[in-house]
Every structure is written in structure tokens, then in C-alpha cells.
């Protein structure tokens, strides 16, 4: 531990030293500075420009994947890269076919949102063996590729859990009853999110989970489940789920029961307009948001970095975790929300 810290300090000092040296040299001779700048620029151009970035989400047409596409496409094209997108429209087979085709087309960078941890793992490995860098976006697979950009799901779930404990747990004077609305039981994001959530909730004995059902990403199902749960537990304290859009259904059920003041509705996801509207009108209480357009830009930043280091695919895997912003009816501001991207 200490060793690592020393190493870290040493390397920082070294970098600082190099920087100072470079700076002083630059100051000494302006001519060389121009040359370096041109070199940096020409290295960048040869490494980045004209390269192809392919983006394969689970499906287009969702705020999340549309924001990502916007973020990736604008930044990639601004950097002089070519952008390709394939829309499998929820069909895993179409997704594997699209990725196989991209591998044989030898695209340079492949950005993928995994439907689960396994289905694409073999293909992504094959892609990297064929020289294509793979960036996994928000939902990772079992295969560790060049890069991961997205939410740290377990800690994300934990954060929400801790917030619920603060609101409903020991000392709050409330019932401590919590209902979890799951998405799809097998989806990776759902599994890890719920694991983190339950871990945090389990740390307070005053909290009891009264219902834990899957709504299959469907707001209507979430609505019906929550309505039934409220009948049984009118003193419910909070309900939480992995996806804000789905939790709109839960929120409506709470509102219909006239319990908006008492039952807290938690969601997570991108900061899209419908979610912000719901926060303003009190249908949702707290939303743990990440900015998907910025995530798209993170992806392209990562790609630019990989391109210039000249690393082989998968040689030095890294992760960029997205920052989370907590929105509620007070903090939600129009500036923090993205409008839906029209076609």
C-alpha cells in the first residue's frame, strides 16, 4: 500500500519534472515549440482522423441510446472520424450479426452496449483479436475489452440504498417498508444495481423489503405492481427501481393513491425530459442521473487516447465511471435535462 503510494508520488514527480523541462525548453526556444506542436498535431491526425467508430446499442429509439448516439457521433465527427451505427432493435440475433459484419469489415473502434454479460463476450474477444478496439458502454460483458465507459452499477445501487436508509431507516420515524421494482431479472445492470441496493438496505435492520418484483422494463406493469403493494402496505416508505422511465408507472400509482407526500419514488437513468417533468410534478421524488450525451463524449475521448497510445486491443483495459448527479424537485433545473432527440 505504502509502496504503491510512493510509486504514485514518484511518477507524479517525474511527470511534473518532464513537464517543467518541456516548459522551460519551450520558453527557451519558440521555434522548437512550434515544431513540437506540429508533431503532436500530425501524430494526432494520423492516429485519429479517418478512423471508423461503430456504435451498436441494444436498440435505438430510447432516450439513453439516442443521447449516446448524439454524443458519440458529434464528437467523433468533430475529431475527423467516421461514424457507423447499427440498430438491432432489441433482437440479439441481429446484434450478433451486426457485430460479426463489423468485425469482418475491420472497423477500428466498436462501441457496444451489452444486453447481458455473456452473449457478446466471445464476439468481442474475436473482434479484439482481429484488431478492433472494443469500448463497452454502460453495460459490460464478461470479456474485459480495451475500455469500459459507464455507470458503476453496484455503487450506484448502494448510493440510492443509502439515501433510502437515510429517509426511511432507523430514527426517521417512518415504517421502513421498501418496495423494489426490478427491470429484467437477468439483465446485468439490473442484477448489479439491485445487489448494491439490497446491500445498502440490509445494513439497517429497520428497513424491510416488502415486495421485489420484476416489471420487465414496463411502466404499466410497474404501475400495477405498485398499486397492489400500496393496497397491502399503505404505510410504504419508498419504492425504487433501476430505470426512471419504468418508475414513472410506480409514481403514477403512488399519486393515484394520494400518497405522494409519504411514499418516496426513486429512479435512476439518463436526465431526459420526461424524467425531469415527472420530478417537477412530484411523480418521481429522486432521480440518480447520469448524462448520456457526456458519456458519448467520454467514449470518443477514450478512443482518441487509445488511438494515440498505439496500444493493441485489450492490452491495457481501463474503465471510465460516469459521475452521478442527484436530481429532485428542488434541484431539477431545465439546464440539467435533455430534450428528447427528434428523428
Amino acid at each position: 500500500m505504502v509502496k504503491a503510494t510512493i510509486k504514485k508520488i514518484a511518477s507524479t514527480l517525474m511527470i511534473a519534472g518532464v513537464a517543467i523541462t518541456v516548459a522551460s525548453t519551450t520558453m527557451a526556444a519558440g521555434k522548437i515549440s512550434g515544431k513540437t506542436e506540429r508533431m503532436v498535431r500530425s501524430d494526432y491526425v494520423t492516429a485519429v482522423e479517418g478512423k471508423t467508430v461503430a456504435y451498436v446499442p441494444i436498440s435505438l429509439g430510447l432516450p439513453l441510446s439516442d443521447y449516446w448516439m448524439y454524443g458519440i457521433q458529434t464528437s467523433a465527427e468533430a475529431a475527423g472520424m467516421k461514424f457507423v451505427v447499427k440498430d438491432p432493435a432489441w433482437k440479439v440475433d441481429a446484434m450478433t450479426q451486426a457485430i460479426s459484419a463489423l468485425i469482418s469489415d475491420k472497423v477500428d473502434y466498436l462501441v457496444v452496449q451489452n444486453p447481458d454479460v455473456q452473449v457478446l463476450a466471445k464476439l468481442l474477444k474475436k473482434a479484439e483479436e482481429n484488431g478492433t478496439h472494443v469500448i463497452q458502454l454502460n453495460m459490460a460483458s464478461n470479456y474485459r475489452s480495451s475500455g469500459f465507459v459507464g455507470v458503476d452499477w453496484v455503487s450506484h445501487g448502494e448510493e440510492i440504498g443509502q439515501d433510502i436508509v437515510k429517509e426511511c431507516g432507523t430514527g426517521s420515524g417512518k415504517s421502513g417498508k421498501v418496495a423494489i421494482v426490478q427491470g429484467e431479472l437477468t439483465a446485468a445492470a439490473n442484477v448489479w444495481f439491485v445487489a448494491g441496493l439490497k446491500k445498502a438496505l440490509g445494513e439497517d435492520s429497520a428497513i424491510s423489503i416488502v415486495n421485489d418484483q420484476a416489471a420487465q422494463w414496463d411502466a404499466t406493469k410497474a404501475h400495477d405492481i405498485t398499486a397492489a403493494v400500496l393496497q397491502q402496505n399503505p404505510d410504504l416508505c419508498a419504492t425504487a427501481g433501476v430505470w426512471g422511465i419504468m418508475m414513472l408507472g410506480s409514481g403514477q400509482a403512488v399519486k393515484e393513491a394520494g400518497l405522494s407526500d409519504q411514499v418516496l419514488v426513486y429512479g435512476s437513468g439518463s436526465n431526459s425530459r420526461p424524467v425531469c417533468d415527472a420530478l417537477e410534478s412530484g411523480v418521481l421524488h429522486k432521480h440518480f442521473s447520469y448524462d448520456s450525451i457526456l458519456q458519448g463524449r467520454d467514449v470518443v475521448n477514450a478512443i482518441q487516447a487509445i488511438a494515440q497510445t498505439g496500444l493493441e486491443p485489450g492490452e491495457k483495459p481501463f474503465a471510465l465511471y460516469s459521475p452521478i448527479m442527484i436530481q429532485d424537485s428542488k434541484t431539477v433545473k431545465a439546464t440539467d435535462c435533455h430534450d428528447l432527440i427528434a428523428k
Partner: peptide, 16 residues
Amino acid sequence: TTAATVASMNTEIVNS
């Protein structure tokens, strides 16, 4: 009725 109840419509309901 569905759309008005939950203030949204998820067309993926087709695959349910």
C-alpha cells in the same frame, strides 16, 4: 387509457 394512466407509452409492449 394505458397512455393516460402512466403518462407514457412503451411500444415494446408489443413484445410482451
